[in-house]
Design a binder for these strands. Sequence first.
DNA 1: TTGTATGCGTTATCAT
DNA 2: ATGATAACGCATACAA
Lengths: 333, 333
Amino acid sequence: MNIYDVSERANVSIATVSRVINGNPNVSEKTRNRVLAVMDELGYTPNVFARSLGLNTMRTIGIMCADSSDPWLAGAIYYLEQELRRSGYDSLLCCSGYLPETKKKYLELLLSKRVDAVILAGSHYVEARQKDNAYLIEASKELPIMLVNGCLDGKQIYSTVCDDRTAVYESVTRLIRSGRTSVLYLYAGSSYSNLQKLAGYHDACAAAGLNIRDDLVRICPKDLDGTEELLRSLASAGLKFDAVFAAEDVMAVGAVKYANKTGIKIPDEMNIIGYNNSILSRCTDPELTTVDNKVESLCTTTVTTLMKVLGGGNVPVKTTISAELIKRGTTDF
Amino acid sequence: MNIYDVSERANVSIATVSRVINGNPNVSEKTRNRVLAVMDELGYTPNVFARSLGLNTMRTIGIMCADSSDPWLAGAIYYLEQELRRSGYDSLLCCSGYLPETKKKYLELLLSKRVDAVILAGSHYVEARQKDNAYLIEASKELPIMLVNGCLDGKQIYSTVCDDRTAVYESVTRLIRSGRTSVLYLYAGSSYSNLQKLAGYHDACAAAGLNIRDDLVRICPKDLDGTEELLRSLASAGLKFDAVFAAEDVMAVGAVKYANKTGIKIPDEMNIIGYNNSILSRCTDPELTTVDNKVESLCTTTVTTLMKVLGGGNVPVKTTISAELIKRGTTDF
DNA sequence: TTGTATGCGTTATCAT
DNA sequence: ATGATAACGCATACAA
């Protein structure tokens, strides 16, 4: 069942059938209807493979993420897929894990599939060490690379980021203004957005005239048990802190659990702020104050930008979106 | 840059280049090396579109789910994608939403993309009304349809399910044996697995010699606020219950919040059991007792089965996996 | 072991 | 408005 069968049955050439398929206006109303009727009668569907070969595109975008089961990334994938489909593109999903080698390998795999562009979801794709990003620069010579919450310079690299630095700055400033003197800062790694957030923390301390205390800035496992354990060990080592700012909700949840178990009263004796406004932030008691970093906006903006890029339009290489502090029960300002 | 360029430069025919690409053993070591060297030198990558056209497959599987940001589905997608890639297949993601019409529309979209098979993740794809499933039967005439936690009869339909009915039966039985007399059962809809779970609840009541009380079986919104509100209104309407069995973790979390706010002591005055063993179940205080329905096993089994199907092997049309009750702080048995 | 020739199902160019 | 025909880049049956 192909275009020849249709053309034969409709008494036209394959060229005409092709025109009908592609909505070319140079077909008489009568012929168009006859062809459509035959296509319907035969249950004909154009072969995408042949189509792709001729057009040299499948209208497919590669979506890469480290781990699609991470709540934030799962949300991002959802919005990206929806927006892409709305624009007539399919989504090829690829979970790369967190290691630079596998990221590189999977990006190359996507390139070999000739996707029209690649969207990298999550800040993990921009590493602190410039050499770990070389493969992205390289790939961007072949096709557009869209970063969701990451930022990198390159000819065909476009970034849509949340202003994490300002968000953390403002949140920590509010903690300090409300009388907190020792804000423990927990973060999970040195990705682009983690570095931005950390800078925001430093900004806030500096603006408040506080010394940066290295003992209050800690790398923390990105899971509940690890976070609880870290806090317990810090406390038993004598570290005093009256607030926790966590760069990820899951660590903030861990902090709430630590406080609840230890009998520390939230928010009176300890304030806690999370990041992402994920569903987790609403499961604790009290519910978490958290920073909403606008996944949906980031994703729709990314796709909108991408469509302009693919359409040959001129677009900004970097778009910044503001975060929003969601006040709930773990803070008292 | 195509196979002709390579063949010319290596002084061989395109057939030989093709053989090298596809690892055909009928190529002399010497020739193979020369061709490989040229491919490397030219940075040649075979064109997947042309390849697909000839082979009539892109080695791509369509993954459909209602909403990839749902925690359970997000996990499923992750495991499915990993397993498929391990087997050399790409994943085309398609979030269909929950409406029968859109599900049908998106499935047809996937078919038109000529994927090798479709995996339907989540029990929402099998509806109670048989006519709402007709499109699946229809599609299964074209390609294999794999159901993850759903069950349906059809020539090329394969189901991998968790034994939800037994899991609920056993959990509710334990509640009753430990002295609970009124187990409120909350569920979200009439999908395949929801009906199975409900049957398990009925089984447990019957086995314990209790009457089925319709006032204890309630459809519940699948979100925190909706669940809390439902419980509040039930209580204020005079309904007494000393345990809640929720068909989804999120509702169980809502129940915990309700109890905590109302001053009902968990687990002494109320037991709560959730379903899915999602990260949510560990965020509450106390942590949720919940049923682990083995997403990872379901997904790896589904892909294993699919590979056998695609390989022409004979495979069971239905595989059942056992759930596991994870005991935490919201129960006292 | 290697090469030749053909088919895969479109789209697009150029006639008419 | 319509038709004939050449790409598109590969895999493979058949020949040598």
